[in-house]
Design a protein around this nucleic acid. Structure first.
Lengths: 225, 225
DNA sequence: AGCTTATTTACCCGTTTGGGTTATGCTTTA
DNA sequence: TAAAGCATAACCCAAACGGGTAAATAAGCT
């Protein structure tokens, strides 16, 4: 008989943490070393050499993927499963590229989750059934995905216009003045941009856009203020 | 006898605006069409076809240079004088590149200012005496300036490290976690970065850095959250 | 005539930023 | 030894931002 599977849960939402912790603790074969939303606490838990990390994707201030990348860069290579609410293929892609061994959805049935985790621990690579469809679409090149360039096509003309100003470092208020529209409208556009590009801050949007734009146009320097 | 010089003052600080307005109004040969800190009001003033704009550099939300660029792009080519507190050679450089006909300092003696404005209106290109030194230094290549690449040399190693994370879209809190230092320390570093690069927002810093970095390293995609 | 999408505006709320200031160790340089 | 620079940290405050929600108008498609 194999040893119990030692898992550590990382989620900044206390409820999910506790829920899954309960669930796994009551299942045969699991040893929940700890459940935390704090990186520092996570580090101490890692000393107990878990077999598997179960990580939430959307966390503040550091999302699951960045967290994993950081741990990897520090030498912690413990396999990880992403457990998240997001059914976005973009998130899935990012997670896979970050090397997770599983991508599970929080709305899966409890036993499905447990089963999936068990399979990952056994070495399988498990993706939530709902997501496999999206994976196939991605691979089939339905939307070649990958290239963020394509993401920009999702934006409307106006949104691209705003993204451009945003990428020049202009504040929402400044953009409003420039385009002669209200501050609230700009905010709304920015919200849409962030949603469509699946980003969470204007800085990321600006950087992404800048990279894609290429340094083709190096005209005006960024000005103070 | 020539007509009076029709000037429009643009400054978001009411005091300076009024002060200069008073000053010029009491001088022979000036016709102050208006003094405003609002862009909309400025537009209506422009209908009176001023001969000269006197613009402050540091204004919120749109700085003087951006403002000028915007006006230029709309077809208003009225000559402009920059009147500012900043004795930074970087600001001077930006202003000159933006095509201002004069760069004056707010701490110049009143009659000097008036005189300088008169000369600009007459077609001269006037730079505050204090600043000419800096101009010469710039030209002499003391710091070849220009290339923002050089600006980064002003940053310490730590600051560059933080700028890099900042340019990945990480929040101050996330950077703090990543580097295992306090949130306040990160803020302090960011402040220094913005000061040294003469920028006013992390977005500008991120974009600048991204452009300089070149898209050489396209590894990790920006992740949600 | 309905339906969808794009654009616009507004309000509320909590978090993040930017700026000012102060201060303590540590290293390097004058 | 003194001065200067760096990394660290803390506190305060006002402004900006991100997210949720709602809604009005216009244009286009079915």
């Amino acid at each position: 008989m194999t040893d119990k599977i030692k898992v550590v849960l990382v989620d900044d939402q206390c409820l999910c943490r506790q829920g899954l912790s309960e669930l796994l603790s009551n299942c045969y074969g699991f040893d929940v070393l700890g459940a935390t939303g704090s990186i520092d606490e996570l580090r101490t838990l890692l000393d107990q050499k878990p077999d598997l990390l179960i990580v939430d994707l959307r966390m503040k201030p550091l999302d699951g993927i960045s967290l994993l990348e950081q741990l990897r860069s520090e030498g912690y290579l413990t396999p990880a499963v992403m457990l998240t609410m997001s059914d976005s293929e973009i998130d899935l892609g990012n997670a896979i590229r970050a090397g997770v061994r599983g991508y599970l959805l929080k709305d899966m049935a409890p036993d499905e989750v447990v089963d999936a985790i068990r399979r990952v621990a056994a070495g399988e690579l498990v993706v939530a059934p709902t997501m496999t469809v999206k994976m196939i679409e991605m691979l089939r090149g339905d939307q070649p995905e990958q290239g963020p360039k394509d993401s920009f096509k999702l934006l409307t003309e106006r949104e691209r216009e705003i993204l451009q100003l945003l990428s020049r470092g202009e504040s929402n208020k400044a953009i409003a003045l420039t385009l002669h529209i209200s501050y609230d409208t700009v905010k709304q556009h920015v919200r849409h941009i962030l949603n469509k590009l699946n980003l969470s801050s204007r800085v990321k949007a600006a950087v992404l856009f800048t990279k894609e734009q290429g340094m083709s146009n190096n005209e005006e320097p960024l000005t103070r203020n």
